[in-house]
Design a protein around this nucleic acid. Structure first.
Lengths: 196, 196
DNA sequence: CATAGTGGTGCACTAAGTGCAAGTTGCTTC
DNA sequence: GAAGCAACTTGCACTTAGTGCACCACTATG
């Protein structure tokens, strides 16, 4: 059954998946998300509509699948930070991998615009980023002082940090990329953590 | 044209809208969101499917329309807080109206469960709450020290506060309501605002 | 060469959402 | 009170997302 999906199978599957996502993003960037049908994506990728839905649960996933992987990369980076480092500093360093893995910075603005243009897409984007909390909170929880509610506190902190990242992204988009994303992020964090 | 939609028209429209949302929530609570079709809601409300879509843009809106109104109530309360009050204190007081307007606390758990059960519904819920930022940030901006980025800082703070509320709601749900929502909220705010 | 398992595909179907072209209702104005 | 106007309602046809199912093609293994 689902015992050993075979390592080679998994790999080809991952490659196809990535190819499909790439094709989709291409079309979304050209024509816009709403104006692109799933059939068009399937046709452009040379695959049947049905097969496409074998790789992605929804059309939205085609545009947002990258976010889950980004979350894992951030988590990996976070796990490598020194144990006694301040949680906010650790999170900031972990987030910075985004600058490294983000494909071609030139069309980054275009992609982010697309993501924020559509209501349900923006919601899905925020939700996927919020899901990063599930990956990151367990990693910073041990850094917090012992307490019965430490797990919850960890989730609150990670959630707030992600919110700062989102606010920064929104502002970065509004300024059309004229300010560095992480400068905005720092401003946001300072704003919420400084009294008055 | 859209000059004077007539006050009486607006009022009946609001009543019908509220009635439809109520009917929908009833069915959603009984059978679940995904298992309820828009046609069923329309039929139960004694109205045509097409008319229902005249009142609500999407099925999701049927479940989430209340959130926009809640945002306005919170904004109204926030506007009434003293000008020199600490922003976090003001926000906390403003959020507290949720305890007042929330219909029947007994099925509140049921409703929140329903909202968090469905992926896109949860995303839509979070997004709608995030939109509260647009209403609340302008009200707290004047309370912040002058700065070129004051508007952005206000958005970050409000966003973080909303995130705390969401984290608290999530935890409240996990504990099946055994702890007061606002005690959890306070814990979350303390966690993000206290060094280490 | 037979066979079993796996992935791709076509087909038919449900359900959300939209555009349009009616019909209905109720209010204004003469 | 009648004519007319504007907004509300509705049915219908259509597009698109998403799913269940059955069948086909390929491949690895005995």
């Amino acid at each position: 059954m689902a015992s050993t999906p075979s390592p080679i199978r998994l790999q080809t599957r991952a490659v196809v998946r990535s190819l499909l996502a790439q094709t989709a993003m291409q079309l979304f960037a050209e024509k816009g998300f709403d104006e692109t049908t799933v059939d068009e994506v399937a046709a452009a990728a040379g695959v049947s509509r049905r097969t496409l839905f074998n790789y992605f649960r929804t059309k939205e996933d085609l545009a947002l699948s990258g976010l889950s992987e980004q979350g894992e990369v951030i988590a990996a980076r976070l796990a490598g930070r020194p144990a006694d480092e301040d949680v906010w500093v650790s999170l900031r360093h972990a987030f910075e991998v985004l600058d490294e893995i983000e494909a071609s910075p030139e069309n980054r603005l275009e992609i982010v615009s697309m993501l924020f243009d559509n209501d349900s897409l923006r919601a899905g984007h925020a939700e996927k980023q919020a899901r990063w909390t599930d990956l990151l909170a367990p990693l910073i929880e041990p850094k917090l002082p012992a307490s019965e509610s430490r797990g919850f506190e960890a989730r609150a902190i990670v959630g707030a940090a992600i919110t700062c990242l989102q606010a920064a992204t929104e502002e970065w988009l509004r300024l059309r990329g004229s300010m560095a994303l992480f400068d905005l992020y720092d401003t946001a964090v300072a704003a919420i953590r400084t009294s008055n």
